[in-house]
Design a protein around this nucleic acid. Structure first.
Lengths: 140, 140
DNA sequence: CTCTCACATGCGCGATTATGCATATGGCCA
DNA sequence: TGGCCATATGCATAATCGCGCATGTGAGAG
C-alpha cells in the first residue's frame, strides 16, 4: 500500500486529530488518560490509536498495566510539517481546547509522572471518572 | 461537517495527491492536460478534482471549452503547511516524477499559454494521446 | 491461582467512498 | 441549427471505514 497516503489518511478523522493534538503536547499519555480527555469510549480510543500507530504516527509501550502512547521518535520530515499544520488548528478548535483542559486536570493527578487511576478512585474525585464510567456516559 | 477534517481527508488518496502535486507547480492546468499527465480516465480526474475543490483546495474557471484548475488563492495558513509537506514527497515518489515529466511535455504544446488539444491532433504527436485515447489505454 | 483492571480486538452493521459505464451539459464551430 | 469536443455527473457496485457490543488478553494484587 502507498505509505504516504496511509499517513495522510490517518489524519482524516476528528478523533485521531484530537489524539495527535494531545500527544504532540505531552511527552506521553496512557490510554485511560486519553479516554478521559476526549470523553470517548475506551474501545474507540484504542482503535484510533491503533490506526495512528500502524500509519507510523505513534509508538506505544507498556508500563505495568498501563500502555503509554507518544508521537513516534522516527517521524519523517514530511510528517513534522504535517504536525506543524495540525498545530495551527489549535487556536481555532473548541474541541482541542476542551481536550487540553481535561487532559491538564487529569495529568495533574499523576504520581511520579505516571498515570494512576487507582489513586484517583481512592481520592474519590468524582470529576475524574474512570474509563469505564466515561464509557457508560458516552451516548452518541 | 468538520471542515478541517474534510481538508485532510481530501489528501488521503493517491490520485488527488498527484493532482495537487502538479497543480502546485504550474500556475494552472486544464482537465485534459491533467488527464494526460496522470494517465487516468477523464471521469476519474474530474471526480477527484471535484473533491479537492469542495474541500477548498482548488479553484476552477472556464475558458472556452476548457476548464482550468489551480490551487485556491484562499488557502488557510494551515493548508500552506500541508502543501509544503506534500512538496517534501516530491523526490521520493516515482509517480510524481513521471507525472511531472508527462505534464512538462504536454504543457510545452500550449499556444499563448493555453491548452490546445486541437493543435496536438494536427501536429499528429503520437506520443501525446488525447484524453479519450488515454482513457482507452487505462486498464486497471 | 484467581480476581480485577487496563487495554485490545473479533464481529456485524450502517454509512461513506472509489470506480466504471453511460450519458448529460455546455461551449465552439461549420 | 446540428455536430463535435471537453468536462461533469447519475447510477450501480464493490470496497472501505467508523461504530458499538461483546469478549479476549495480559499484567498486577491478594
Amino acid at each position: 500500500m502507498d505509505r504516504d497516503v496511509e499517513i495522510l489518511q490517518a489524519l482524516g478523522d476528528p478523533t485521531r486529530l484530537r489524539l495527535l493534538n494531545l500527544l504532540e503536547q505531552a511527552r506521553e499519555i496512557c490510554v485511560c488518560e486519553l479516554v478521559d480527555a476526549l470523553q470517548v469510549p475506551q474501545y474507540k480510543a484504542s482503535r484510533h490509536l491503533q490506526v495512528l500507530t500502524n500509519a507510523g504516527w505513534l509508538e506505544d509501550h507498556r508500563r505495568g498495566k498501563w500502555v503509554y502512547y507518544r508521537i513516534s521518535t522516527r517521524l519523517r520530515p514530511f510528517q513534522h510539517d504535517l504536525l506543524r499544520a495540525i498545530g495551527r488548528l489549535r487556536e481555532g478548535r473548541e474541541d482541542f481546547r476542551q481536550d487540553e483542559a481535561r487532559a491538564g486536570r487529569r495529568l495533574m493527578l499523576r504520581r511520579d509522572g505516571l498515570c494512576c487511576v487507582g489513586l484517583v478512585s481512592k481520592i474519590g474525585a468524582a470529576t475524574v471518572p474512570t474509563s469505564r464510567q466515561a464509557q457508560a456516559q458516552e451516548t452518541r
